[in-house]
Design a protein around this nucleic acid. Structure first.
Length: 657
DNA sequence: GTTAGGG
DNA sequence: CCCTAAC
């Protein structure tokens, strides 16, 4: 298996359109990129963000009656960082703001107090969070946060702390590995059962960031970890406007040159925006109701042709804000809920995983107990799928780094937790679980959590695309991509999973690009089995290049250039054939005729390709690059070009006469 | 929404 | 492949 690293175009900037066309060449392209942070630093941020968020939630949901809970023992089993709470000491709980508590989504009574022997560790941890995560991770003073959560050792804060602390202590370089699951499972996963009642947040490995809630009352608990399941998937999801597949939430990450690292990723992410903007402009998005949004009209009417880059960005953001799709891109959707008796996470979770970024299992005390506690376990938070392309000669270490880069790119901006119930986003943090229905068993099954960027909270949209691709020969074939239909209906394996919820998971992958997978990149069993794989004739290796995932929600300044997808010989042939018949200048017809099913090929693409083909045909073979096009085809190109050019001239002459 | 063409 | 102008 030799995977070529895709080298995308060199520039990702915007054109500054203020210069008159005549002097277009003078216009510069301004790269939009943020100063890149070191990957390691970002890894910390990610961890801190997750942990901080949980802490924050935890903090804000502390209840006064928490202290009344049964005495709980907090045991944090961790190879590197272990704390055992023998229950000898009990932290004094800080008075809780009842009002605030009631408002908090997570305001379930933690019940008992837990504590950690090593309080200083906790403080340190909290401080780290505050520092590393900066602004939001831990708004309250570190000490306070620690106090709160230590007070409720039972709730997720405790474990979370432990895990995160440990991870933060790890060498930065290791974080990547940890995230991709390569690090020895020394953490909480080692002894999941003991994690019960210990809050934990773990960014784990394989393509998922998992934070699980394990609890007896409402704890963020053990972190389930799946090993060795990193998905290296290729798929095409260029067009998402059509249909919607209920498949796994995944993000494909373009794999940037290692040395470029973070910066590269940011650039890629940046292009995403452009792409989304483009889509908005070109056709609009569908909202969650499947209705097309008249975005373009607004866009056009509001903005004239003179757009500066700044303005463009602003508009894009604005448009994106309206688009569920765009927003969703930012986040990591979690959804997938299923009533689990908690067995094999992987197996049982298959359903949830398919479109959910988080799977939740729930339990509930007997209804009769009016004051029961809600128990739920978030099995995992899925990070959108990553698509990685890396040379077979690359080292394992570089693979880890690559994955890390992808993950950090996704998680880079901090997260916050969103809650979905029956497909709807629960926005009112002030409501109690009971009021929102979260405490009801049946609804619990439709409860989902999402990890999303702090700034975006719009529900993800659904989207997918037609998996089939019409090859030049006219024979419909399926490119290696995930077929929407290849994924079992969510409902099939997920109990009580409401459609709306499912939609969440789709957002991310809806924007993915098609990528021939005949290289067997995918290691994900489920995925590979479910997807239709078709060998694409003459498909160049380049086509396999990593596909930047369309992260629906990305940091504002970023947008993504479309993936470069070299035309295969068969495509060229189809193009030539169509042009021979239809002539140049009728690209829409050419598209309809020969590439109707190739969603990633727009008529503009075809036009461009023809342009390059003509150029290619005119230059010497030595000067040509990329996959060689048969001379015969090039000859036809020249012939057709000459013919139609002549026709055009003739037409003009006739018209003139 | 298409087409043409520079980048 | 992007972007814009011009239709």
């Amino acid at each position: 298996m030799v995977l070529q690293r895709r080298l995308d175009y060199g520039f990702n900037g915007y054109q500054v359109p203020v210069v008159p066309r005549a002097s277009r060449s003078a216009r510069g392209r301004e790269s939009i990129r943020k100063k890149g942070k070191d990957n390691q630093v970002r890894a910390f941020e990610i961890l801190a963000a997750v942990a901080g968020k949980l802490l924050q939630e935890r903090e804000s949901c502390a209840l006064p009656n928490a202290a009344s809970g049964a005495d709980q023992h907090t045991i944090i089993k961790n190879t590197n960082w272990e704390q055992k709470d023998v229950g000898q000491r009990r932290m004094r709980l800080e008075p809780c703001d009842q009002g605030r508590c009631d408002k908090n989504t997570f305001a379930f009574a933690p019940g008992s107090q837990g504590h950690h022997e090593n309080n200083s560790e906790m403080i340190r941890f909290a401080e780290k969070l505050a520092t590393v995560n900066g602004k939001n991770a831990c708004k309250s003073s570190p000490r306070k946060a620690v106090g709160d959560y230590t007070g409720y050792g039972e709730s997720f804060g405790g474990k979370l702390e432990g895990v995160v602390e440990r991870e933060l202590e790890v060498e930065p370089q290791k974080i990547g590995s940890m995230i991709n699951g390569s690090v020895p499972d020394t953490g909480c996963s080692k002894d999941p059962m003991k994690l019960d009642m210990k809050p934990s947040a773990v960014v784990s490995l394989d393509t998922c960031v998992k934070a699980s809630l394990f609890n007896n009352r409402m704890n963020f608990g053990s972190f389930s970890r799946r090993q060795g399941n990193m998905k290296l998937v290729s798929r095409d999801d260029d067009e998402n406007s059509s249909g919607c597949s209920q498949r796994d939430t995944m993000i494909q990450a373009y794999r940037p040159p290692l040395h470029i690292g973070d910066r590269r990723i940011r650039k890629l992410l940046a292009s995403k925006y452009r792409r989304v903007a483009s889509k908005l402009r070109d056709g609009g998005f569908y909202n969650t109701d499947g209705k097309r949004q008249p975005v373009y009209r607004n866009w056009k009417s509001c903005h004239t042709r003179h757009r500066s880059q700044r303005i463009s960005s602003f508009k894009r953001r604005k448009l994106l804000d309206r688009s569920p799709v765009a927003i969703s891109g930012q986040g990591f959707y979690s959804k997938g809920i299923y009533n689990s008796s908690d067995k094999g996470i992987l197996g049982d979770n298959s359903g949830a995983a398919r479109g959910a970024s988080s799977s939740v299992s729930c339990q509930q005390a007997p209804p009769q107990s009016g004051d029961y506690n809600v128990k739920l376990s978030i099995k995992s938070f899925r990070v959108p799928e990553l698509f990685i392309e890396i040379p077979a000669t690359a080292t394992v270490g570089s693979l880890k780094t690559t994955v890390m880069e992808a993950v950090t790119a996704i998680l880079g901006d901090g997260l916050h937790v969103g809650i979905l119930l029956q497909g709807k986003k629960v926005r009112d943090d002030s409501k109690t679980l009971r009021q929102t229905g979260i405490s009801q068993v049946d609804k619990l099954r439709t409860l989902g959590f999402t990890l999303e960027p702090r700034h975006a909270q719009i529900p993800p949209p659904l989207c997918t695309e037609d998996p089939s691709f019409q090859l030049p020969g006219g024979t419909p074939q399926q490119l290696t991509r995930y077929s929407a239909t290849s994924f079992p209906e969510p409902g099939a394996s997920i109990v009580s999973l409401d459609p709306p919820v499912l939609n969440l998971g789709n957002c991310v992958d809806s924007d993915l690009d098609i990528v021939p997978s005949h290289t067997g990149i995918s290691t994900d069993k489920t995925m590979s089995e479910s997807r239709a794989l078709v060998a694409v004739p003459a498909m160049s290796m380049e086509a396999l290049t990593a596909v930047p995932f369309q992260q629906k929600s990305r940091c504002s300044e970023y947008s993504q250039r479309r993936i470069r997808r070299p035309f295969s010989v068969s495509e060229v042939e189809a193009l030539v054939q169509a042009v021979e018949k239809l002539g140049t200048g009728r690209w829409r017809d050419v598209k309809l005729r020969a590439f109707d099913s190739a969603r990633h090929r727009t008529y503009v693409d075809l036009k461009d390709k023809w342009k390059t083909l003509v150029h290619t045909a005119k230059i010497s073979p030595q000067q040509r690059r990329g996959e060689p096009v048969p001379q015969e085809l090039l000859d036809r190109v020249l012939a057709a070009h000459a013919y139609w050019s002549q026709q055009a001239v003739a037409l003009q002459v006739n018209a003139g006469v």
